[in-house]
Design a protein around this nucleic acid. Structure first.
Length: 280
DNA sequence: CGAACGACCTGCAGGC
DNA sequence: TGCCTGCAGGTCGTTC
């Protein structure tokens, strides 16, 4: 039960990032940034001391997402933000007192404020001239919901790879945005064992896998709002999101398809859940 | 080149 | 109650 709460509370996989972006977009767009408050600059990459000066007074033109990065386009330059493993963003009244781990504020001319909270500080909040030239974004694979991603692409890219297929699809240079939960889920739905070498999955099965990745991410994005509402409302309603998961965090529970107990194995240093009967 | 692994952090659950 | 250990949604840099 507590596991369900845990999952709800922090889940910056791609659907969460997309939901976050949609949630903050209308409050930021076409607003001027009156002030930047950095209470804690130590992140995965530290906040540059000159970031406030570059950002204060700028207008927010648009928000975009690339992989799990939230990109905020200003009238001069961009902000490149990542939620890491524990980050979240919310819109608050700029007079609201900051809570623990509320590290950065973008105070807007509207009186609202974008507040970035990140307990583990694995995220980042960077300024750059042009994200297309930023090294962090340079080697990212295609978007899983875009045109350039399909089974044939995965099949081609997997030629000669001995790496486990789960690690392969979680590699951001293969395809972006497939996190640990959805990697397990998509592999289950595609009937592929997570430890199978990437180079030993057929073209046909990669087509299935690509479709399942798209399906599971799209469904989660549609539900993202619900997850966030539960999160911010703190109404203690557990498990709504977790019920959608067939295998993740379900060690020993019956497979929804064949009822054999779900197994857990560490692959590429990450916990992986699968059905030994349905996945080959 | 690919692949494995350590590292970065805090919070929480569970065991003793 | 409190201390210790292990584990957690990400992913980059180093090393082999």
């Amino acid at each position: 039960m507590f596991t369900a709460t845990k999952i709800q509370r922090k889940m910056p996989e791609l659907p969460e990032v997309e939901t976050t972006l949609r949630g903050i977009q209308s409050s930021l767009q076409q607003r001027r940034i009156a002030e930047v408050i950095v209470r804690e600059p130590r992140f995965r990459w530290p906040v540059s001391p000159d970031l406030p000066a570059r950002v204060q007074g700028r207008m927010v033109e648009a928000l975009e997402r690339r992989a799990k990065y939230i990109l905020i386009r200003l009238d001069r330059g961009w902000l490149v933000c990542h939620l890491g493993m524990s980050g979240s963003m919310r819109i608050v009244d700029s007079t609201a007192p900051p809570r623990t781990h509320d590290h950065i504020d973008l105070v807007l001319d509207s009186g609202s404020c974008l507040r970035f909270n990140d307990p583990r500080r694995f995220g980042c909040f960077l300024w750059c001239d042009d994200p297309r030239e930023h090294p962090l974004l340079a080697n990212l694979g295609p978007e899983p919901l875009g045109d350039r991603f399909d089974g044939d692409y995965l099949y081609q890219r997997a030629r000669g790879r001995r790496q486990a297929v789960k690690a392969f699809i979680m590699d951001q240079s293969t395809v972006v945005g497939v996190g640990n939960i959805y990697a397990s889920e998509a592999l289950f739905k595609a009937g592929i064992a997570p430890s199978r070498p990437a180079g030993r999955v057929s073209r046909q099965r990669y087509r299935r896998l690509a479709n399942e990745i798209r399906a599971v991410l799209s469904a989660a994005i549609e539900q993202g709002g619900t997850t966030l509402r539960d999160f911010s409302g703190a109404d203690g309603k557990p498990g709504y999101f977790r019920q959608q998961l067939a295998v993740y965090d379900r060690l020993g529970q019956p497979c929804p398809a064949c009822a054999r107990p779900i197994r857990k194995r560490v692959i590429g240093q990450r916990a992986s859940y699968y059905c030994p009967g349905c996945q080959r």
